[in-house]
Design a protein around this nucleic acid. Structure first.
Length: 423
RNA sequence: GGAGAGGUGGCAGAGCGGUUGAAUGCGGCAGUCUUGAAAACUGCUAAGCUCGCAAGGGCUUCGGGGGUUCGAAUCCCUCCCUCUCCGCCA
C-alpha cells in the first residue's frame, strides 16, 4: 500500500502510476475522505484532551473531598460526543483503507508504460532455442510413454489440473527441488526455509493477494460451520516467507535477509480454461522454489538484478535456453514496482514458458506488513524493501526439460548438473 | 478434545479503577573517571496518528474486538495465541 501522505502530496504522480498500471481508482474521492477524517479527528481529539484533563481534575477534587457531580455530568455528555466522533472517524478510516488497499504499487521510472503485455521487452537471452532434428514429441506424449506423470490419475483423485508424478517423474520433482535449493543456499547465500502451505488472512493481505486476487485462492474455514476465508492454501511461498517478518524490526546489520524455500503452490486459475492448459503448462497445484529478500531501500534495484541472476543461474545449470523479459507497466502484478520474467523455449509445444517471475515491491509490501529496520545513520525506523522471485517453478521446468532433452528414441537425457540428484 | 495458568515497553518483570506511557532490573546510547579498556557513577532510551515553517503541542496504544464507567493495563463479554496436565493421534 502507498503512504497516504505520499498520495496527499503527489496526487498527480499517483494518478499517472495508476494509469500506467491500467487501474482506475478515484483519488479525489480518497483525498476528500481523508480531509474529512482529519477534520473530525481533530475535533474529537480536542474533546478527548478536555476529558483527560477533567479526569485528573476529578481525581484531585475527590481526594480533597470536594463535589465532582457537575464535572462528571459534563464529562458524561462529552464522552457521548467523543463516541460519535470516534464512530464517524472509524467509518471514514475503513473507507479510506479500502480504497488505499486497492491502489497498486507505482512502477519505477525505467518500466515501459504500456497497456497489457504490449510494453514487455526482451532485455537479454541465453542459449539458442533448441531445434530438434527429429519429430519432437511434446511433454505430455513423452510423459505418458515414459510413465513420468499422469493428468488422468490426478483428475480422478482430485480434479483437472492436479498432476500425479510416478517413478522417475516423481524423483525428478524431488531432485529439482534439492538441486535448486542447494544452488541458492551454497552459491547465493540464502537461508533455507520450510514453511506452512496454509496461511491466515492477514498474511494474504500482507503480500497483496487480498483483496484483489482473493477469487483465485483456495479458501479454507477455520472450523466446522464457519465461513471460508480464514485460511488459504498458498499460491506461492512468497506469502508465508515474506510474512515471517510481518510486524518485525530487522537490525540494519542483518540486512539483507535472504530466504529460499520450497512449497507446493495452489492456484484456482479461474477463467483461464482452455488457454495454455495442456499438460503441465497451467495446473492448480505445482511445486516451486522461491527466493525472498528483505533489503535496505538504497540500491534496492540492484538487488532485483542480482535476484534475477540467481534465478538465471539455475536455468544455465539446467542448460535451458531462456530469455529475460522486462514487464511493461500494464502486465505487472498489483504489488510490483518492477518485474522480470524468465521464459524458456519448449521446442515441441513451440512456446515460451514463464518459469520465473522476479519482482521488487519497494516499500509497498513492507508498509502493508509493517516490516522495518532502524537506519543506523538517522536512528529512525524505516520500511525495508522486499523482493521475491521464483527460483524456479517446477511444473513448467519439467515440461521444458522433457521437451528440450528428448532424443530421437523418445528417451530423456537430463542435463549433467542434475545427474547426481537423479542417481 | 477436556482441565487449569497466562499474554504488559528490545528482553525480564511489577502494577489489578484516578498524575501509570507504565515501578524495578537487564540491554542500548551519551557523559564522568581512565594512557586505553573494563568496572563504577550520572543522564537519556517506545511507536503510530495528527496540528505546526519550526520550537513544540494534542490524541492513541499494556494480545485482537466489544462492553461497563466521568475515567480502564486494571472490572465484564468474546476471539486469538502461549504454557502445564489429561485424552487422542501421524
Amino acid at each position: 500500500m502507498l503512504d497516504l501522505k505520499f498520495i496527499r502530496e503527489n496526487p498527480d504522480q499517483v494518478a499517472q502510476g495508476l494509469d500506467a498500471k491500467g487501474v482506475s481508482v478515484d483519488i479525489q474521492a480518497l483525498l476528500d475522505l481523508d480531509l474529512e477524517r482529519r477534520t473530525l479527528l481533530k475535533q474529537g481529539e480536542e474533546l478527548k484532551a478536555k476529558r483527560n484533563s477533567a479526569s485528573e481534575e476529578i481525581a484531585r477534587l475527590k481526594k480533597q473531598g470536594h463535589s465532582t457531580d457537575e464535572l462528571i455530568a459534563e464529562m458524561k455528555s462529552a464522552s457521548h460526543k467523543i463516541a460519535d466522533f470516534d464512530a464517524k472517524v472509524g467509518e471514514l478510516s475503513d473507507k479510506i483503507e479500502r480504497i488505499a488497499l486497492s491502489i497498486p504499487n507505482m512502477p519505477t521510472s525505467d518500466v515501459p508504460v504500456c497497456k497489457g503485455a504490449l510494453g514487455n521487452k526482451v532485455v537479454r537471452s541465453w542459449g539458442q532455442p533448441r531445434k530438434l532434428e527429429f519429430k519432437a514429441k511434446d511433454h505430455l506424449e513423452l510423459a505418458s510413454e515414459l510413465g513420468l506423470f499422469s493428468m488422468e490419475k490426478g483428475s480422478k483423485i482430485t480434479g483437472a489440473g492436479f498432476p500425479v508424478y510416478f517413478g522417475a517423474g516423481a524423483k525428478l520433482e524431488r531432485a529439482l527441488i534439492s538441486f535448486m535449493i542447494d544452488i541458492h543456499v551454497k552459491k547465493h547465500g540464502y537461508t533455507e526455509v520450510w514453511a506452512p502451505a496454509i496461511v491466515n488472512r492477514a498474511s494474504m493481505r500482507g503480500t497483496g493477494q487480498i483483496p484483489k486476487m482473493e477469487e483465485d485462492m483456495y479458501a479454507l474455514a477455520a472450523g466446522e460451520g464457519e465461513e471460508k476465508g480464514s485460511f488459504f492454501l498458498i499460491p506461492t511461498a512468497e506469502v508465508p516467507i515474506t510474512n515471517l517478518m510481518r510486524d518485525e524490526t530487522i537490525e540494519e546489520k542483518d540486512l539483507p535477509v535472504k530466504y529460499t524455500g520450497y512449497t507446493p503452490c495452489f492456484r484456482k486459475e479461474a477463467g483461464s480454461y482452455g488457454k495454455d492448459t495442456r499438460g503441465l503448462s497451467r495446473v492448480h497445484q505445482f511445486d516451486k522454489v522461491e527466493m525472498v529478500k528483505f533489503v535496505k531501500p538504497e540500491g534496492s534495484e540492484q538487488e532485483l538484478e542480482s535476484l534475477v541472476r540467481d534465478a538465471e543461474e539455475v536455468l544455465q545449470a539446467l542448460e535451458l535456453p531462456y530469455r529475460v523479459v522486462l514487464l511493461g507497466s500494464g502486465d505487472m502484478s498489483f504489488a510490483a514496482a518492477k518485474c522480470y520474467d524468465l521464459e524458456v523455449w519448449a521446442p515441441a509445444t513451440q512456446k515460451w514458458f514463464e518459469v520465473s517471475s522476479c519482482s521488487i515491491f519497494t516499500d509497498f509490501q513492507a508498509r502493508r506488513m509493517n516490516i522495518r529496520y532502524r537506519n543506523a545513520t538517522s536512528k529512525k525506523l524505516e520500511f525495508v524493501h522486499t523482493l521475491n522471485g521464483s527460483g524456479l517453478a517446477l511444473a513448467r521446468i519439467v515440461l521444458c526439460l522433457l521437451e528440450n532433452f528428448q532424443d530421437a528414441n523418445g528417451q530423456i537425457v537430463f542435463p549433467k548438473a542434475l545427474q547426481a540428484y537423479l542417481a
